[in-house]
């Protein structure tokens, strides 16, 4: 395996090794023209540093907030994003697609 910027799990392990609180967000379902395929991942630490992506950048802010909360309370979360979401103006997908993102603490 070549070391690339896409090695999200490697980054998660490395951050964990540095003693940081770490969470992973994973795209588990998509509908319509979602920007990133199922399985795409974002790694987040307790301070909100992130690597990778679960969208074209439109929902990462909200996902990072939930990830930081998951690091604190240890509870996994399933997040839904889409144009019909009530938070549409904050985190709606401009492309009109919908995605489901699973967020969980590592370790």
């Amino acid at each position: 395996m070549t070391a690339t910027s896409e090695d999200i799990l490697g980054t998660a392990a490395a951050w964990k090794g540095q003693g940081r609180g770490v969470a992973l967000a994973t795209v588990t379902l998509t509908w319509g023209s979602s920007p990133r395929p199922v399985g795409s991942q974002l790694v987040v630490d307790q301070d909100g540093h992130m690597m990778g992506s679960v969208s074209g950048g439109c929902i990462e802010g909200a996902v990072v907030r939930e990830a930081v909360a998951a690091i604190k309370d240890g509870k996994p979360r399933l997040l839904d994003f889409g144009v019909t979401d009530e938070q549409a103006w904050d985190v709606g997908l401009a492309c009109g697609g919908k995605v489901q993102v699973f967020v969980e603490r590592v370790g």
Binding site: L9, G10, A13, T28, F102, R105, V106, G107
Partner: peptide, 26 residues
């Protein structure tokens, strides 16, 4: 995700071995 699980997935990827991580959403 357990750290052991993450490390097992990484080990599989490094040895070019296919693996499926099954995760219950609940």
């Amino acid at each position: 995700m357990k750290l052991e699980t993450l490390k097992a997935v990484q080990a599989a990827r490094e040895s070019r071995r296919a693996v499926v991580l099954v995760k219950r959403i609940a």
